[in-house]
Design a protein around this nucleic acid. Structure first.
Length: 553
DNA sequence: AAGACCACCAACCGCTCCTGG
DNA sequence: GCCAGGAGCGGTTGGTGGTCT
């Protein structure tokens, strides 16, 4: 296999080359032996940069392993490529990300997961490394804050896509004996933000079951990272909390202020426990999951807030919501409301993940070329956004995104959020009702949405209908489900019901039993009547909500 | 003032995919 | 079909400087 020559081995990993003109300049400099010469590692010097630039001018990009040969640069080709791509390449945009870029990154990440290169293609002048670093930093920050990685409206979406994938994966392949290691390596697309029409409920995390059955299929789905119904405990006292304003502005949650207010008591745990949605605190989550058997359902959290690198129980590797459709362009994910591209979205919806993954070209294969295409399109848009808007181009501009996607909260909804007294400032319904990228033609064909129920803030528990098409072939089990309005759920739990929300710990088994057992309906009818406290569709521990529709299972 | 903590950035590393012989 | 080299991607690590206690 063509492992890169840059790869170090035990013998030369720590070897420094005293003869190398550049070795030793960086604190982390080391040397690799390649064809008898030592390869420098560590920070690049301006002299090295100049050499590399000169080489690229003469020979063009590519053939990086020849750089050392022809330029005398004591760097492996890999290092040269990285240096060029991340620092020396022309048209690189330096400096901090703009607000638009940040929001676009968030949105793209919700779509693609940790596909940094593809994300970079949508951000002209930005490198995958930059985006990656930004995201990782952001994750850390949000994890510390116990905040969601995404605005709340993305959570149901992430679940939906994940559920769709899982259902298709399992139901469409009868011979598919689920390998836990593979089964839980989810890619969760999220191309229809805010379209809760098809948003199924969230369930607490349920451990994987070995059987392959509709029930187990469901449970497998429930084990997805999108709906682990646990809340990350805020066990650590955060001594400092930087950039609270930024966090607030990003999410519009009045969390951090409350957070700081709570800081003196209980290490902000009060605030954190109330914010049971889309939490980012994988490390804590993992700890609790590892104790899951003894502590089922005690830690509600949910939705795509895992780092793909975060270790999971059973070597589960999770990936954040990722729509692995390399050929899918952004406007397919974010159809212009004025020109909803139903076909494209429908095709995405209808395509099974199995088909998707197998049919679509490898991300690798589409990597650079696709990135160039993306970037070219993006550049075009940047130059002439007006013409872009009038066309049916396949690339959406950041402005488009802020206008037509739930992330338009960047400058508008966030403000509204901030103005609200609700913990989220406003409900996902706000986003859904005001900026719903209606996508699936199926939605249009079906009865009218109870849109009125989505507008405004209403904390009353009003049942509303969500259709959950498990699978086209599973219609009998995919009848319409009734769930509480998400805003009602949010409201009830966010408004100081942390105690009651924690009560839901004991209901995990109820859910499991309900999902797997025969007395499906009764349990949740009891639940609906308040005799038990199920984890509701948004992972809130105990918001007394109507989950009677779960009896459909 | 010192240490701890954190954000940011750059670079490395391991792996996978693609391509050509 | 197999193999090796090239290239790219994503994860991780380490350094540096700023801020806070």
């Amino acid at each position: 296999m063509g492992l890169n020559k840059c790869k170090t081995n035990e013998s030369d990993d720590e070897v420094l080359s005293p003869d190398s003109p550049v070795i030793g300049e960086g604190s982390s400099s080391g040397g690799d032996s390649s064809e008898g010469t030592m390869l420098k590692k560590g920070p690049w010097t301006s002299a090295e940069d100049a050499i590399l630039v000169e080489y690229v001018k003469k020979h063009g990009e590519g053939n990086w392993n020849s750089v050392q040969k022809y330029s005398g640069l004591s760097r492996c080709g890999k290092s040269c490529r990285l240096r060029w791509a991340n620092h020396l390449r022309p048209n690189l945009k330096k400096g901090a990300f703009t607000a638009e870029e940040e929001h676009l990154i968030i949105e793209l990440h919700a779509k693609m997961g940790n596909k940094w290169a593809r994300m970079a293609a949508h951000l002209p002048g930005r490198t995958d490394n930059e985006i990656k670093n930004y995201w990782n930093t952001r994750i850390k920050r949000l994890q510390r804050a116990g905040l969601p990685l995404y605005p709340p409206e993305l959570c149901p979406q992430a679940f939906q896509e994940n559920q769709q994938n899982l259902n298709d994966d399992t139901l469409n392949s009868g011979e598919n004996i689920l390998d836990p290691l593979e089964t839980y390596s989810y890619d969760i697309p999220g191309f229809m933000f805010g379209n809760i029409r098809t948003t199924p409920p969230f369930f607490p995390y349920i451990p994987p079951l070995p059987e392959f059955s509709p029930a187990s299929t469901l449970v497998e789905g429930l084990g997805s990272p999108q709906l682990y119904g646990f809340s990350p405990p805020m066990r650590t006292c955060h001594k400092r909390f930087r950039e609270p304003e930024q966090l607030l502005s990003q999410y519009g949650y009045d969390i951090l202020s409350q957070y700081d207010r709570d800081q003196g008591d209980d290490c902000r745990s009060k605030g954190s426990q109330q914010h049971n949605i889309c939490f980012a605190n994988p490390s804590s989550i993992i700890k609790d999951l590892s104790n899951f058997g003894a502590n089922q359902g005690s830690q509600p959290f949910l939705t795509g807030n895992f780092s793909a690198s975060t270790p999971m129980i059973g070597a589960v590797k999770l990936e954040l919501p990722s729509l692995q459709y390399p050929d899918t362009t952004l406007d397919e994910w974010f159809p212009n409301p004025s020109l909803p591209q139903l076909e494209s979205v429908d095709s995405l919806i209808q395509s099974t993940p199995g088909t998707t993954q197998s049919d679509c070209p490898s991300p690798r294969s589409s990597g650079l070329l696709e990135a160039l295409v993306y970037e070219g399109k993006a550049l075009t848009i940047t130059k002439d956004p007006s013409s872009e808007r009038s066309s049916n181009s396949s690339v959406v501009t950041p402005k488009d995104l802020t206008n037509c996607s739930p992330f338009k909260t960047s400058s508008t909804e966030y403000e509204v959020y901030n103005k609200s007294n609700l913990p989220f400032g406003n409900s996902p319904a706000y986003t859904f009702s005001n900026c719903t990228p209606i996508s699936a033609s199926k939605c249009l064909q079906e009865e009218n949405l109870p849109t009125e129920g989505f507008s405004g803030v209403n904390l009353k528990s009003e049942p509303m209908s969500y259709s959950w098409d498990f699978d086209e072939g599973e219609k009998e089990s995919s009848t319409e489900l009734n769930y509480l309005r998400p805003d009602a759920i949010l409201g009830s739990c966010w408004l100081g019901e942390s105690t009651s929300c924690r009560k839901g710990q004991g209901t995990m088994t109820d859910v499991i039993a309900t999902l797997l057992g025969d007395n499906k309906s009764t349990d949740f009818r009891n639940t609906a009547s308040g005799t038990s406290t199920p984890v509701n569709s948004f992972g809130f521990g105990s918001c007394p909500c109507n989950i009677s529709s779960l009896s459909h299972f």
